[in-house]
Amino acid sequence: MRFPASARVAPAGPEGSAAFALELDPELLGFQGHFPGNPILPGVVQVDWAIHFAEAAFGPLGAFRGLEHLKFTDIVRPGQALTLTLALDPARESLRFAFQDGDTRKACGIIHFQGNT
């Protein structure tokens, strides 16, 4: 499976924002081979999830242009429960995202798009 088996929309804030509660099944494809015996979720998977869930919340975003202020500040392991928060800024064609486990930030950044926003 590519995405968390349990992903539910958490209460959203202002327009252009969304939040998802994610339960990370140890059988997720992203954990396979990264690293055997000590699995962690790769950063590229976290960025992919941010885009996937943003499009689920806001519709098509447009063509990917790049990443800015990307930070992976703590390891994501199987079985963790994360909150993914998203904030879309159509005028700047950008999406801010952050993954957190309680008060611990795991990753954050800004994804830039061109087109549909």
Rank of each mutant, 00 (worst) to 15 (best):
L88M: 03
A107R: 01
L86T: 02
P36I: 13
A98T: 10
A12H: 13
D48C: 08
L88E: 02
E68V: 00
S17Q: 15
A87D: 05
L24C: 09
F58Q: 08
F58C: 13
A21S: 14
F58S: 09
G66P: 04
H52T: 10
Q80D: 04
F35A: 09
D101H: 05
A56G: 03
K71F: 03
R8W: 09
K106L: 03
F113H: 10
Q32E: 15
G33I: 12
L67H: 04
E55D: 04
G62C: 11
E93H: 12
G66W: 03
G33M: 06
G16D: 12
G43W: 00
P60E: 11
R105K: 12
V44Y: 10
A63Q: 14
G66F: 02
T85H: 04
F53P: 01
T104Y: 02
L29M: 12
T73N: 05
L24K: 09
I40K: 08
T73C: 06
F31Q: 07
P14Y: 09
G62P: 07
L28P: 05
P78K: 01
A107K: 00
T83F: 00
P11N: 13
P26Y: 10
R105H: 06
A98V: 08
A19P: 10
R65S: 14
L70R: 06
A91E: 14
V47R: 03
P42A: 14
F99K: 02
Q80E: 15
P36S: 07
I40A: 15
R105S: 08
A50W: 05
A18C: 14
D25L: 05
L70P: 04
A21N: 11
L88H: 02
E55P: 01
L70Q: 15
H34S: 11
L82G: 01
F35C: 10
A63I: 07
F72P: 01
L84S: 00
A54F: 04
S17F: 07
A54S: 11
L88P: 02
V9I: 11
G33Y: 10
I111V: 15
L61N: 07
P14K: 12
L82Y: 00
I40C: 11
I51F: 07
A63T: 12
P60F: 08
L70D: 06
D25P: 03
P26W: 12
R105A: 13
A50Y: 04
H34M: 11
G102Q: 01
F113P: 08
F64C: 07
E93C: 10
Q114F: 05
A107I: 01
T104R: 15
G79E: 04
Q114M: 11
G16V: 12
A98N: 02
G13D: 14
T73F: 03
G30Q: 06
N38T: 05
F97T: 00
K106C: 01
H34C: 07
G109S: 06
A63E: 11
A19R: 15
F97Q: 00
A91M: 06
L86C: 02
